[in-house]
Write a protein that binds this DNA or RNA. Sequence first.
DNA 1: ATAATTGGTTCATGGATCAGACCATAGACC
DNA 2: GGTCTATGGTCTGATCCATGAACCAATTAT
Lengths: 253, 253
Amino acid sequence: MSGKSAALVRSPDASPWEAPIVSRRVADDVVDRLVTAFALGLYVPGQQLPPERELAGMLGVSRTSIREALRQLGEDGYLEVRRGRTGGTFVRSDWGPRSAEHVRRQLVARWDEFEAIFDARTLIEPLIARTAAERRTEEDLGPIRAALQDYLDAPDHDASRRADARLHLAIAQATHNRILVETSVDLRTRIGLNLGAEPYTDEVRRMAIRQHQDLVAAVAEGRAEDASRIAAVHFTLSETLMRGLAERAGGAP
Amino acid sequence: MSGKSAALVRSPDASPWEAPIVSRRVADDVVDRLVTAFALGLYVPGQQLPPERELAGMLGVSRTSIREALRQLGEDGYLEVRRGRTGGTFVRSDWGPRSAEHVRRQLVARWDEFEAIFDARTLIEPLIARTAAERRTEEDLGPIRAALQDYLDAPDHDASRRADARLHLAIAQATHNRILVETSVDLRTRIGLNLGAEPYTDEVRRMAIRQHQDLVAAVAEGRAEDASRIAAVHFTLSETLMRGLAERAGGAP
DNA sequence: ATAATTGGTTCATGGATCAGACCATAGACC
DNA sequence: GGTCTATGGTCTGATCCATGAACCAATTAT
């Protein structure tokens, strides 16, 4: 079967089925779960994670594996542990690749991945927004508006990121399609994995607030084309910001 | 952390992060790879798989794991083995759920999954077609046209399915985005996993031929909107066929 | 007949994972 | 101040998974 046709496997190769299989360890899955939770804003910096024994029970794995996962996350600077009676594992407030050098290396190493993710996102998120506008029910609007309000009220960057994640998640869920929700979460998580945080300035925040308001209004009123267009602009802004960050960090080719 | 807000987790729930982690075995990954290869038409019924030792080398796993995977696929009736010098493992010509009863059970069990997959497909594939029409280069057109020709020349159902898979893969690759390619392949594979084969009649084939020709023309000429529209119709047809099959099998609710 | 190619089987080894026990720390609580 | 308790830190033995290698069995090319 090495005679796979050259026509079939081309440059953006779809993971050729003969690629080596890497056996994933349980701890790696735990790491992915936790990073996803962080990216979704389920844990904010400073917040305490459940005790290791409880995490083990929740995820159905041994404490050994939980500890290995926490060790990895700790190495990357995502976590901080305190011992003693009120101790525990806490999310660091400056999590993610910390030094500029670290950012640069991350970006260079994963630049291709990066391009693909952002590209896919600016294509798929408008589709999600359009579909949400077409399908949203009254019950969908509650979580969406709540997340928007939280976003407007967010006192700091972290709260803002968290509300942003919840808002886009709620919109994705308004499509009533599990696969679209998963895709959206997956893209967001991959970006979180690669970077940690988007750049953030007051001007950016003002633009994002306006876009979020417009997007929610379009979805609520069922203006599908508007929702699609606004989402396209919104995620293009996000992409531009990240590219700027990458170029300032010297990571862009 | 059980206090996750009710607003955040709703009916099409995006795999709650606390769900138990299932440790995947290597053999299961091998099974997935092989089924994907089948769904992509890389192996046609009657064709011989590489020897176990060679598969082990290709996938970077032990022969033990390969054998376990082949055992599973054999149990499900996908494979047939012959011993001796010219022996080997062969793809069965009637693979997939074989009896109508089997189909019905499959459909009932996975009906929700099913709905979501088809729904996502009719949303995402037009996006892929549109993007392919916008971005395709001259080099992309070769594989696309070759696959279309193979589809037109296909002497039987199996060859037709194989060419169909290659055609849509080639179009997805013309988007030059790895994630879109993966998504398309993933959706196709999931459908293959759930069903094995689509219904197939001469009339369906005539319609599909026309749609494929139109789709390729639209992509080749860069008519993005046309490509999107044609893809929407095409995959809606596919969905309708499957629903019909499901209802005749008594599986639809 | 013999050699070659393939699947079928067995075994020893190392690593991953688990369950459980126990230790160490530091703050709560009396 | 002393004790209790909730937490992280460490260790051990058992079990299961995956590997690599050797060898057996069947079948056919030569």
